[in-house]
Amino acid sequence: MNPTNYVILASVLFSIGAIGVLVRRNAIIVFMSVELMLNAANLAFVAFARMNGNLDGQTVAFFVMVVAAAEVVVGLAIIVTVFRTRQSASIDEPNLLKY
């Protein structure tokens, strides 16, 4: 299969992730959308690694996974704290800081 298709798929996934961030209200889902975007990047890296014929892309993908994991830790910590305080996972709920 042509690696270009993977890149296109990655772009689609990235877009889905971005749209998810914009339209979903639940903090967890928003967060998952971000992870989807990261993984789209991973896919693109791997696909490009294949196209370029070097391994840099694959290496990057691993690193990104690790980073994503770290991000999950931090992110969930924050989201959980906010959830505990507000009893709501809605991302629109915390709206004290504005203007």
Binding site: V21, L22, V23, V30, I91, D92, N95, L96, K98, Y99
Partner: peptide, 17 residues
């Protein structure tokens, strides 16, 4: 312009997009 700073994360994300 101040009103654009609505306080909603998703608005901010939209502006970033």
């Amino acid at each position: 312009m101040r009103r654009t700073q609505s306080g909603f994360i998703r608005t901010y994300a939209l502006s970033m997009v």
